[in-house]
Nucleic acid binder design. Structure first.
Lengths: 358, 358
DNA sequence: TTGTAAGCGTTATCAG
DNA sequence: CTGATAACGCTTACAA
């Protein structure tokens, strides 16, 4: 284990003070350009690397951002994290990532770890079953900024970053209506989670605005939107009388397995039942028929989240003023919802619809 | 921002020395049980939290493990990380995770960041196009242990953790042969990556051991095994004459899109062509027919990786002795490779096969 | 533009 | 079993 070079070593070598070295390395303006260059050269030739811990200890900053995420293995979440990482890297921050795996319990433990690691800020997408968010109170008490994204708390402190789930659901449902569907079911997740509650609203309002009845019994709300949930939902839908001719599902995985189950029961998609999912996961292109869905701007959300957090950390903005940042999302139409007979009409309607929406 | 409590505050409060407080908090054996308890109580009632940076600075350990991964959004990689996180948490380590997104360039940058962050150890699954691994040399020079997993380097320093890709591929191919396939194609990734090279070998040996010809033209090696690659592979396979009656694909996503393309061309799976994938991604259950595949023990691999790394960090084991750790994998048979006519024979053969294999 | 000196909060060392 | 003291490597008033 070779000895670590410190700013003292560089200082001695160049016969300047450690302070000057420190300043030069931090690109402080009040250091002679020449000296700065000499110091940089010496640093690199001597194999110096800065000691973050000494620096953190002294400056009381960690240059680390904590991320708590339900799970990493979705197209959406990994895009978000990619976006976060990009900006964080640019600005010289590290990301400590932990998964709550959907369990509030693990989320609480992770929050504690992040707190003890003294992250400069925290980015959180809540677990499925997180009831209260008091485990984030220590951060608020210490003035460590916390930003919730995607799955945000109902009455939260801190900023929330979301897409307009209601609008997205409204668009998706309207699209089904334009395709000629009149009995549209909705498969939703836990109504306790904001995203599902908002999507349910969008679904409901779209129906109402197009003079279709909103029927509670057409809404299937489970807790987890996984493969099993899709199969179970299909079972229930097949039993409905009259059977729905369209489904808006709040999650692609669930939509995909639901489609599979419906097909196995002899129904054809989109002819008998048109389906729209949510997330634009990679399975969308693989399932048959390919799945119409809502594309989340995950990468952008990650970028915005980190940028906003850095503003809070640096005192540039104030969490008491900004409260929610809303990003746009986009409906992607594929085969699972495209009924040939309605295609022409649909295109015309889309124009009209835009005026209604905005 | 309330004032942070330090061990000095606790020491003053209880009229002991800071040293004793430090020792107690670290559960040092040479501290009176009673004193220890008093210190613990005071610490929690005063709202003390340890300052990792001071501790790291002094002890020259960071309690942080760096993870560099190609991408997070696969069933396999996220399982690995879940396993890593579990063990790391248990042992009081944090995980800093970064994605190389398959680009060697980003991997190099990430390695540098990890180095400057002074991680105690590094876990790496190499990017697609990583040629040489000299960007990890600084770690070796400083004696920071590095463990490669899954995608390991050809002539690497440090320990490698892998599954027996050759054996897994051998099993998968043998399974296809047992189902009556005689012309089996193989869709592979870059032969520069160990996992694909090994799987190709397993495929080849299985053919040879069962007296089937190994034909280079039946091997389609692309660089990325994504959806497009599956479609392109299907195109090529459809042009082959005679057309293969089985395909072993080194990746599920690619296998799924390949199946879709084959079906669109009027071929039926598994009747015309049986298919086996690799990874046991979540799409396996959703595609039609459901996809037979090789299940990687991802979670275990993560656990083993961290445990091994901690042993190296703590000097319990020695990287010069252990070189490669190989984990078992499992063939999961689903519809895409099950030909009813051969089912009975297959069961009998499986027994025989075991004797051949082990 | 540069330097001096005093910490940041912990742990290692040595001495009881 | 406990304590005094000196680092760890850096930043930041303050001073020149």
């Amino acid at each position: 284990m070779s000895k670590e070079i410190t700013i003292y070593d560089i200082a001695k070598e160049l016969d300047v003070s450690p302070t000057t070295v420190s300043r030069a390395l931090n690109d402080h303006p009040a250091v002679n350009k020449n000296t700065k260059q000499r110091i940089f050269d010496a640093a690199s030739s001597m194999g110096y690397r800065s000691n973050l811990f000494a620096s953190n200890l002294r400056s009381k900053r960690t240059n680390t951002i904590g991320v708590i995420v339900p799970m990493l293995n979705s197209h959406f979440q990994s895009s978000v994290i990619a976006g976060m990482e990009k900006v964080a890297n640019q600005e010289g921050y590290n990301l400590i990532i932990s998964q709550s795996l959907g369990a509030a319990e693990k989320e609480i433990a992770n929050a504690k770890t992040m707190f003890n690691s003294r992250v400069d800020g925290l980015l959180v997408s809540l677990a499925h079953n997180t009831g209260d968010t008091s485990h984030f109170d220590p951060f608020f008490q210490k003035g460590v900024p916390v930003i919730f994204y995607d799955r945000i708390a109902e009455h939260q402190q801190g900023i929330g970053i979301v897409i307009d789930n209601m609008q997205a659901a409204y668009k998706a449902t309207t699209h089904l209506i334009e395709q000629g569907c009149t009995r549209i079911a909705h498969i939703s997740g836990s109504p306790k989670i904001n995203v599902y509650a908002e999507r349910l609203k969008g679904y409901k309002y779209a129906l109402i605005d197009h003079n279709l009845p909103f029927d509670e019994s057409y809404v299937l709300a489970g807790s987890k939107l996984n493969e099993e949930a899709g199969i179970e939902a299909a079972r229930q839908i097949l039993r409905m009388d009259p059977m729905p001719d369209g489904i808006f599902v709040s999650n692609d995985t669930c939509a995909a397995s639901c489609i599979k189950a419906l097909k196995q029961a002899g129904k054809s998609v989109p002819e008998d039942i048109a389906v729209v999912g949510f997330n634009n996961d990679s399975i969308c292109g693989i399932v048959e028929p390919s799945l119409s869905t809502v594309d989340y701007p995950g990468y952008e959300m990650g970028e915005v989240a980190v940028r906003s957090l850095l503003n809070l950390i640096n005192g540039v903005s104030d969490a008491h003023i900004t409260n929610t940042i809303t990003l746009r999302s986009e409906l992607i139409v594929r085969e699972s919802s495209t009924r040939k007979a309605f295609a022409a009409r649909s295109a015309a309607d889309a124009e009209t619809q835009k005026k209604v929406l905005y």
